[in-house]
Amino acid sequence: MAVPSKGRGGNSDAARGISRWLLTREAGLVILLLAVVVLFWILEPSTRQQRVYWDLLREISPNLIAAIGVTMLMLAGEFDLSIGSMLAVTGVTTVVVFNGTDNMWLGIIAGLATGPIVGGIHGYLVTRQKMNSLVTTLGSLFALRGMVYVYTNKTPIVDENGFYDFQDAYYNNLGPAPLPFVLAVILVVLALIVLTQTEFGRNIYAIGGNETAARVSGIKVNLIKFILFVICAGSAAISGMILTMQTGTGYFDSGSSGFELIVIAGVVLGGIALSGGKGSLVGTVLGILILGMTAKGLRLMGVNTNMQLMVTGSIMILAVFMHSFHDRISIFRKR
């Protein structure tokens, strides 16, 4: 099937490529995304302006960046539910160090460092102590949030120096593209290269596919998982940093209204299997975009929040059904 038959032109090769692509998971998602965009284009005139889409990309950058880490971790069959609380840990740490040292860079470094530290703890508990990652990170979801509450006494930490360079970074653009989105794209591309072009990336898929087999074949399962926990909390810390730029504040409740659920929903919508080993980062990006665009469109239409919830819920069921349908077809095709 993969061998092109002789005597046919490049044109039909391309056509064949396209038709094959159309059967992939990503194609279904692209179509879904386009459908959402077109639907809102028709229903809501204000979506017919460019700025709405740039706004959207700026808005979803934190979700996108956090989703990179979550995707990589889920591909290896593990979870991190604590990313929402990480946003607050990063934000509060950053601004506290701002105020304590009057040094912007020290604050940024300290804030970002919280990610690998927390991720390292998760990694240690899961790989060394053999704790279940879902329950462990459910615990740290509460533990981290609680510590932020205790430390801040539920008062937002205001940046006393007013580091406007820091705050402006959120709203500034590179060409037409918002800076946070540029950062997100760079990180996505990096992660894509790691996942598809390196031994490390292949090993992640191998572990998620069959951990015992991966172990037997000599893959350092524990080390890789440890690194993935660090990457996941690290990418959540970068998200938290972006939100801190946006708000200029270490906000104790940052990410508390279901950030982890929105990100995981996007990742699953993108086709990453909950059991690991299956799916791609491109799918995740599309999943996050679909959810973001749906939310934005509904907001612009002035649909009230409860209806937004129902629509988002339905879209999730639809998309995941699409994936399971796709899985069945591809099994059928393989036979």
Partner: peptide, 23 residues
């Protein structure tokens, strides 16, 4: 029936039922 992982299915239902309550 639809073969959707129950965590995802019921997370979606979490939103839908909440919406129904507000509705």
């Amino acid at each position: 029936r639809l073969g959707i992982n129950s965590l995802i299915a019921t997370l979606a239902m979490l939103s839908i039922v909440r919406g129904a309550a507000f509705g």
